[in-house]
Nucleic acid binder design. Structure first.
Length: 354
DNA sequence: GAATCGTGGAC
DNA sequence: TGTCCAAGATT
């Protein structure tokens, strides 16, 4: 055992075991000369940033159906894009997606740049996504480094330095490992290997095409790599939210969040800020208007990237339609279902309507 | 360099 | 129930 790692065994494995995904050009089709659509590659890669394949699939199909070409997406309204993205998370991706589509359609003649530098200049495209698009859509040699690659190469070369300090070494290794011939398939092969064989826990080393050259496998360290710097604890923030219900049609009062920051540009029900030392004695001061607000039993709990949230929900039943306040609107039925409501807000609305 | 920025599934 | 973490980018 302990040969020098090369791309060949992995590419051979990929030819047999590549996952079939809606945005992927299979190795067979590639051999037949099928050219991937850069728009489709870009769309999928942005959606896949920190998001699982299973979650992305339906959103990808929906977006491609709504906006088949980059010009279609560029011509869509910001609101429609945010509505279609609702629930997928990391909403700055959706804002940047729209900006990027506009730049490609209006300034680049509808064609995505082929180089990493050219791609990197577009909003929402960082080092990973630029390399992925360049390699997958344009068959250019680029070191595609994502979380899978970090894990697979940390084990293959037994890199014991904790992430993120080990990133430079991992990048260098990926640059040297990536073949001139099939850089896109190779990148996807490493990612498929990481997703199905070289998994974070209990890797299936006996099935791995790189088992021979894998030094972590030889030393028994595979399942303990990569090492990572310890994470910070999440504090818990509290707040209140108000579900105003128009009794005639069960419409709910909504408003827009500020364009940047947490859930930026998305819709919400009126409520307080969320803080660690929220003062519940002033809860009703955050209501959109005076009413017979009734506290719902149970608290809506949600966890964001860097804090836990516990929201106390109030419901108010309105017999007459009040004059709608600044930048607010009523929404019911199919309209409500299609609103740009992030998951936390859907939980709150559900709690209010129960 | 460290923080910010969502969500759902696996264990 | 809590933690991990998934095809990261931006500031």
């Amino acid at each position: 055992m302990n040969s020098i790692p090369t791309s060949s065994p992995l590419l051979d494995w990929y030819d047999k075991h590549a996952r079939s995904l809606p945005w992927r050009t299979s190795p067979e089709d590639r051999r037949l000369g099928v050219i991937p659509d850069a728009y489709q590659v870009w769309l999928s890669e942005v959606m896949l940033q920190q998001t699982t394949v299973a979650t992305v699939k339906d959103y990808y199909v929906k977006f491609l159906s709504l906006w088949p070409k980059v010009e279609d997406l560029a011509g869509a309204s910001d609101e429609d894009v945010m509505k279609a993205w609702a629930g997928l998370g990391y909403y700055s991706r959706a804002r940047n997606l729209k900006k990027c589509a506009e730049m490609v359609a209006q300034e680049l003649g509808g064609r995505f740049p082929e180089t990493e530098d050219g791609l990197r200049a577009l909003p929402g495209i960082g080092p990973y996504t630029a390399a992925a698009i360049s390699a997958i859509a344009f068959n250019r040699k680029a070191a595609v480094v994502d979380g899978n690659v970090e894990r697979v190469l940390s084990r293959l070369y037994e890199i014991t330095t904790p992430l993120p300090d080990s990133k430079p070494d991992i990048r260098t290794a990926m640059e040297q490992l990536t073949p001139e011939d099939r850089p896109g398939d190779f990148a996807q092969a490493v990612m498929d290997l990481g997703a199905t064989i070289c998994t974070p826990k209990r890797p299936a080393c006996v099935l791995c095409p790189w088992v021979d050259p894998c030094t972590a496998r030889a030393s028994g360290l595979a399942d303990s790599l990569p090492r990572k710097a310890p994470k910070k604890a999440k504090p818990t923030r509290h707040g209140v939210a108000f579900v105003a219900i128009r009794q005639s049609d069960n419409a709910v009062l909504l408003r827009r969040r500020p364009p940047k920051g947490l859930l930026g540009g998305m819709s919400e029900v009126p409520g307080s800020i969320w803080s660690e030392d929220f003062d519940f004695t002033t809860a009703l001061q955050h209501a959109p208007f005076p009413a017979n607000w009734q506290r719902r039993t149970g608290i809506v709990k949600h966890t964001f990237t860097h804090f836990h949230l516990e929201v106390t929900v109030f419901r108010g039943l309105l017999s007459d339609s009040l004059a709608v306040l600044d930048e607010s609107w009523w929404s019911s039925g199919d309209d409500l279902a299609g609103e740009a409501l992030p998951t936390i807000m859907r939980k709150i609305v559900t709690a209010g309507l129960d």
